[in-house]
């Protein structure tokens, strides 16, 4: 178990360095420099399974949270929490704590999925299809491009200028078919977020593959490659001994997409 936690720690440290390193060099941001340096120390320490390595990674991610607070992105909060759990595992001589930290990391990811579904239900805009309609009509990001490409077969898609909404209402000319497709897609996403974690907890056969597929699907369609890399690493923890190729593949695949997104911006 400590080996798999080390693998996840290395993945997280490498990713942190991948994001902070270029920012430090190109933008000369003191916080990015500190994060990159600490992540490097973390890498060295985690290779040798040292607690100071986990502590350095935790400090790197804490600096990131502090630097962006109160506008810290949710995945930064999550990765800081993951680093806290990792540090606890590496700092304790008790083998049971290592096993418990492993379980809490897995639980953390499942809780993100589950509560993400709950939040969508509570606030209502996603469940009704409104959020995806807004994305299609007004946004110009990866998710909107992906949706528009996928939905082109179903209906003519509205497009409008979001700035106009502050000044006056805008009529979108939405077909009932498009409205139905978006509502169904929204319901499916919420169902996956609520049900898949429960299946995993219940140890249903194939559930961890469903979790992996859900995470990869969400990452590719939303463009949230940064979080997807971390989350995929935690998904691998649901296997007793994930092969090294899985760790390498997860890192290289998502890192390539992160790099592509940065260069195309």
């Amino acid at each position: 178990m400590k080996q798999t936690l080390r693998a996840f720690g290395l993945l997280l440290a490498l990713k942190t360095l991948l994001v902070a390193g270029p920012r430090s060099l190109l933008l000369e941001e003191p916080a990015s420099t500190a994060i990159a340096m600490l992540a490097t120390v973390g890498l060295v320490g985690l290779v040798r399974q040292r607690a100071w390595g986990a502590a350095a990674l935790l400090l790197a991610l804490a600096v990131r949270v502090a630097d962006t607070f109160p506008h810290t992105l949710n995945h930064a909060w999550f990765e800081c929490l993951a680093a806290v759990i990792l540090w606890r595992a590496f700092a304790s001589p008790d083998v049971r704590v290592i096993a418990q930290a492993h379980a809490v990391l897995r639980f953390a990811l499942l809780s993100v999925f589950f509560y993400s579904g709950i939040q969508k239900l509570v606030h209502g805009q996603f469940a009704s299809g409104e959020f995806l309609m807004h994305t299609v009509a007004f946004e110009g990001n990866h998710m909107s491009d992906t949706l528009r490409m996928a939905l082109r077969a179903f209906a003519d898609l509205p497009r409008a200028d979001a700035n106009e909404l502050a000044l006056r209402p805008v009529t979108l000319h939405v077909s009932p078919l498009l409205r139905g497709v978006l509502a169904t897609l929204s319901a499916g996403i919420i169902a996956a977020e609520l049900v898949v974690p429960l299946l995993v907890v219940a140890n249903v056969r194939g559930a961890r593959w469903a979790l992996l597929a859900t995470q990869v699907g969400i990452g590719l369609s939303s463009g949230e490659f940064d979080f997807a890399l971390t989350a995929t690493g935690i998904v691998l923890l649901f296997w007793a001994e994930p092969p090294r190729a899985a760790w390498i593949g997860a890192f290289v695949g998502w890192a390539a997409l992160i790099a592509a997104a940065v260069f195309s911006a």
Partner: peptide, 9 residues
């Protein structure tokens, strides 16, 4: 914001 996993809600 603030880690409640309310993204896309």
């Amino acid at each position: 914001r603030f880690g409640g996993w309310g993204m896309y809600a």
